[in-house]
Amino acid sequence: MKTPIQFRLNGEEVATFVEGGANLLDTLRESVGDLSVKGGCWQGTCGTCTVLIDGVPRLSCVTLAETCAGHSVETVAGLRRGADLHPLQSAFMERFAAQCGYCTPGMLMAAKALLDKNPNPTRENVVDAICGNICRCTGYEPIINAVLDAARSDSRRRA
């Protein structure tokens, strides 16, 4: 017996049916078709699957999909506005903050959660914001620098 759920994904209403116990990660990828979310562990330990639910970072692999009904979910597929990249995306490119790219969607969402709440983070704030996201390639420094760059460029744009 599947349960119908409807929620906002990157600003658009989507609806699907989920099995009992289905997690949000598999629902997004396999039912809804948003392949921009990646899965690394299905244990809630690596942070790769990080999405935003109502603006706060959540691990989609250990989130019961049906709890999202009526809520707002954001994934990396919704970051850019048409042809324009989000400042975080541009900053990651400039700073070579990705190599294999697999942790990148989760990192971007964790960073977005930070900047949406705190547009002027310290380095320590950034480290805390991504401390739940494992990267096996970059050594994290390029990512931290990219997030700080994005914050600075964003504030310059708004000034």
Partner: peptide, 21 residues
């Protein structure tokens, strides 16, 4: 030189083997 797959990485469109339905 920029990586040829960097744009794919930051937009979540780089195709990993499992990105097929």
């Amino acid at each position: 030189t920029q990586r040829q797959d960097m744009l794919g990485h930051v937009t979540g469109t780089s195709p990993y083997y499992d990105d097929h339905r």
